[in-house]
């Protein structure tokens, strides 16, 4: 029953978007995101030093009123289904060691609080930054003796969503002083400004120079990552961050990198930094 109501709300929102888009105003909304009337999210933040924009803004501000409303209400947010599914996985033993996440980490509400706000993090073993998805795979292989999830496996998305949700409302903050994080940030920055594909566009072409404007029916945001994995109404599913990156690169008519490769991990470090200070919104709702 619960599930059905949420799905219906999502369908209604999609229909609403098509109508609202044509006469919506271009500027980001002048609105506050307060979840369930009690939890105020930071959707506008002062940029970190060296940031090219005057204000860091959540993608929530660029969505229609109907889409924004879905994220304001935990009961209506279709992404909350995946949080529930993630909790089940958290507590279910898997792999030869017969352990679940909970066997080692206990209550996620306590042990995972803040984790989603501070990743990607330097991994000394791998000598590269890793994100939540890769951290989960590391635990599965090393501590559970289970197979790593394949990219975008439904359980990978649900568990990542559940873990990030434990940091709901906390400000995004990556620690660039660990390991070689700074040079990965540089590499990510280079990718951000590199034009790709037959259309010859970079991330900056759309999200830095033109955020706030419509590109056909899509209202361009700053392309921040604080809501990932996000529930996308268009796909009626959770969308992981690397899936989104690949989609944006593909749209320039370019070959796009595989998930979790060095190029995309560096991009994740850099783009996460661009959203410094915004609240973790997972699961955010987008069009």
């Amino acid at each position: 029953m619960l599930k059905k109501t949420r799905m219906l709300a999502a369908v209604a929102a999609v229909a609403g978007f098509a109508l609202a888009g044509s006469y919506a105003v271009a500027e980001p909304a002048d609105d506050d995101l307060v979840i369930d009337g009690t939890m105020k999210m930071t959707v506008r933040a002062k940029p970190p030093e060296g940031h090219p924009l005057d204000e860091v803004r959540s993608g929530w501000l660029y969505r229609t009123e109907e889409t924004r409303a879905l994220e304001e209400d935990t009961f209506q947010n279709p992404g909350m289904l995946y949080v529930e599914r993630g909790e089940e996985i958290w507590n279910t033993a898997d792999g030869k060691a017969g352990k679940s996440c909970a066997s080692c980490h206990g209550e996620a509400a306590a042990s995972m609080k803040g984790v989603g706000a501070s990743f990607p993090k330097w991994d000394a073993d791998a000598k590269r930054p890793i994100n939540i998805e890769l951290r989960i795979n590391k635990c599965r292989q090393e501590n559970m003796q289970a197979e790593p999830y394949k990219f975008d496996h439904a359980d990978q998305k649900a568990l990542t969503t559940y873990i990030k949700h434990q940091s709901l409302g906390m400000p995004v903050s990556v620690d660039l002083s660990q390991g070689d994080m700074q040079s990965w940030w540089e590499k990510g920055k280079e990718t951000y400004y590199t034009r790709t594909g037959q259309l010859n566009l970079s991330c900056a072409s759309c999200h830095e120079l033109n955020n706030g404007k419509y590109i056909r029916a899509d209202h361009l945001s700053q392309g921040n990552v604080n809501g990932f994995p996000t529930y996308r109404l268009k796909q009626a599913n959770m969308v992981s961050l690397h899936n989104r990156f690949r989609g944006c690169i593909r749209d320039t008519r370019a070959e796009y990198p595989k998930a979790f490769t060095d190029v995309l991990m560096a991009l994740e470090v850099y783009v996460t930094w661009r959203g410094t200070g915004l609240s973790v919104e997972t699961p955010a709702v987008r069009q």
Binding site: T194, R195, T196, G197, Q198, L199, N200, L201, S202, S205, C206, L209, N210, T252, R253, A254, E255, Y256
Partner: peptide
């Protein structure tokens, strides 16, 4: 400029394989 060149081979990196050498 953000506007693509519609009859130009001066394009971005990693052009989709089937579009290499082709104009928009």
């Amino acid at each position: 400029t953000v506007m693509p060149g519609f009859y130009s081979l001066d394009v971005g990196k990693d052009v989709r394989k089937d579009l290499v050498g082709k104009t928009i």
